[in-house]
Design a binder for these strands. Structure first.
Lengths: 218, 218
DNA sequence: CGCTCGATTGAGCCGCGTCAAAGTGCGTGG
DNA sequence: CCACGCACTTTGACGCGGCTCAATCGAGCG
């Protein structure tokens, strides 16, 4: 999970990748329909991507074919950065999405030329690392209810108590390493506890944030 | 887990941090005894560290105080890189350890001056990110036996079928998000299956690598 | 209106955590 | 050198949380 804007009023997100104030790389825009692959695991990693509109997930498959979602990427978020020449994970559109694409070589020359760009790039990857470590902590040390509560709080992040989930129960389950049934039960339980409202399965209203925070506290 | 050398013949590891060929930063050496804290969660993050000898773990605590080990760092590995001004996790010596320390400001000026240094730094963080994502996959999608098998294979990594575990069962458990009992049972089971030998609890001999790899395959 | 896909709910089971009790190795001091 | 103590590991019995399997429900859409 990279940022967590489900803004009804979308910030204007251009199709440039901004590495630092004053350092922006113009990209070409590509559109993807729901569940379309942006890039596949093992493909050459010679582009960098930025979500303009919609939501994108990055995923890996374990040897036996079970899916693990590594992160959800919201408008403004950058994804696709890799150490090696090939992608170690795949990316897919969660919703219809618009994505800005920049050649990796462009990034690299910009970073080589401008220290500020290099610094911005580093900051980007470092923040992804921090988020991945948080993910490890959640999967390692939290129970089912706690994971779902933490997930909702991440999405709500700011004052907004109203969340329009862009992803299915299956996506949530594969992100939190649970089953759809368990996620569903967690939602129902939280509704029963007056912590949230569920007008529809994709629409969550935070009714009692304190209760959620307590629930989340592993 | 950053690298996985349990080399009996330790490579000579100097107390410099090498960001790129030709770009090395001299650090000061500090020694730590077993279980000593290298830095704490929340402390100012104005140093970068490199293991010279011994093993270091980075850890986070969940709200209820349960420990999650994020990574083990072996000689040559760099750790302590952070996005923000403060450490989001702590670091402790697993064994008596010798660590090279470099001021963060030194790193930053080197990266600002030399694009190769910046590139090396980026590569470093990116590889940490890849490893953290692998960790997510293991915790999310593997059962107990599979986790332990994957852990051992990581440690053995090369041809060396002989592993001298530098860490306790408790450390392994907190890295794999299991309990010491479950880790212990996994070891005994693997021994029963002729996959490994356990001359002592800290000494593992890989007897049947194929079996381990099959076990690891979730 | 009926089909289909996603979400919910229930029943039963199993893997791993919990609790408790030995067992093992190592360092220390007598 | 041996005896003791302590920390770590192993092993067993048992319970519970989350997975599996299965049925039902509900919403969007042709």
């Amino acid at each position: 999970m990279t940022t967590h804007r489900t803004d009804p009023i979308q910030l204007p997100v251009s199709d440039a990748i901004v590495l630092a104030p004053g350092v922006a790389l113009q990209g070409t825009r590509r559109r993807f329909v729901r569940n379309e692959e942006v890039f596949g695991e093992g493909e050459a990693a010679d582009h960098l991507y930025r979500v303009v509109a919609g939501v994108v997930r990055t995923i890996r498959f374990s040897c036996d074919g079970r899916r693990q979602i590594l992160a959800f990427h919201f408008p403004g978020d950058v994804f696709g950065l890799e150490a090696g020449p090939r992608h170690g994970y795949a990316a897919e559109a969660v919703t219809d999405a618009s994505v800005a694409v920049v050649r990796r070589s462009m990034i690299e020359t910009a970073a080589a030329r401008d220290p500020l760009a290099a610094q911005g790039l580093l900051r980007l990857v470092t923040s992804h690392l921090t988020q991945s470590q948080e993910h490890v902590l959640v999967l390692g040390r939290k129970g089912a209810g706690e994971r779902v509560a933490a997930f909702l709080l991440q999405l709500a992040d700011r004052v907004r108590p109203d969340i329009d989930l862009p992803m299915s129960r299956a996506d949530i389950a594969d992100y939190l390493a649970l089953t759809i049934e368990t996620v569903s039960r967690a939602f129902t339980q939280m509704e029963r506890d007056q912590a949230i409202d569920l007008p529809t399965s994709r629409h969550v209203v935070l009714r009692n944030r304190g209760a959620l925070e307590q629930l989340q506290a592993a």
